[in-house]
């Protein structure tokens, strides 16, 4: 069952490139985020959708060569030079999908009382950003970024819960 991701798929209602609707709002606080963004750019891949070439008229169900196609695709992806879109446009503008450029999957285990706060946190974020909703993936990635920028706050919280007192 390796193909199935358990849970929901990567549906995102945010604007795509050719979308004439409003793009997803950019984070308002831009502070030091830029240096992380340029780090990200170092390992960048092309922004062209690699799926385009292999898309064809036959139904996906009848195609049996896709797994090797996928491997091919991944290797070409790595060797394709990065386009300038990466440097020119902020992440939320250039991406068309919530999964775009997010090649690393982090799994975290948390206490219930932490998990229980996530919905409220995302609502609050959406409110601040004037958006309908903020996807879990976006909220989590940027929460992590915020923490990276404020390790002292993180340390404080950990100390409050007795880290290092033994």
């Amino acid at each position: 069952m390796s193909n199935f991701k358990s849970g929901s798929g990567n549906l995102d209602f945010g604007g795509s490139d050719e979308d004439d609707g409003e793009p997803e709002p950019e984070p308002t606080e831009k502070t030091t985020q830029t240096d992380t963004e340029s780090n990200e750019g170092d390992e960048s891949t092309a922004t062209e959708q690699p799926g385009e070439d292999s898309r064809n008229k036959t139904s996906p169900g009848t195609d049996s060569t896709t797994s090797s196609q996928k491997e091919n695709r991944e290797s070409t992806e790595e060797s394709t030079p990065a386009t300038t879109a990466r440097e020119q446009y902020p992440y939320f503008i250039r991406r068309s999908n919530v999964g775009d450029e997010r090649d690393t999957r982090l799994e975290i285990h948390v206490r219930d009382r932490v998990a229980d706060q996530e919905a409220a946190f995302r609502n609050e974020l959406a409110e601040q950003l004037n958006a309908n909703e903020v996807s879990k993936t976006d909220a989590r990635e940027f929460a992590l970024l915020a923490a990276f920028q404020h390790p002292e706050r993180v340390a404080e919280l950990m100390a409050e819960e007795g880290f290092g007192t033994l």
Binding site: M1, S2, N3, F4, K5, S6, G7, S8, G9, N10, Q49, P50, G51, S54, R55, N56, P60, G61, D63, T66, S67, Q69, K70, N97, G99
Partner: peptide, 23 residues
Amino acid sequence: SLEGLEELVGNMENQLDIEIGLS
């Protein structure tokens, strides 16, 4: 017997570059 479903999902994901979830 979810094999057929799995194959369909896998092929769609590869060709259309999307991620399909199984609730």
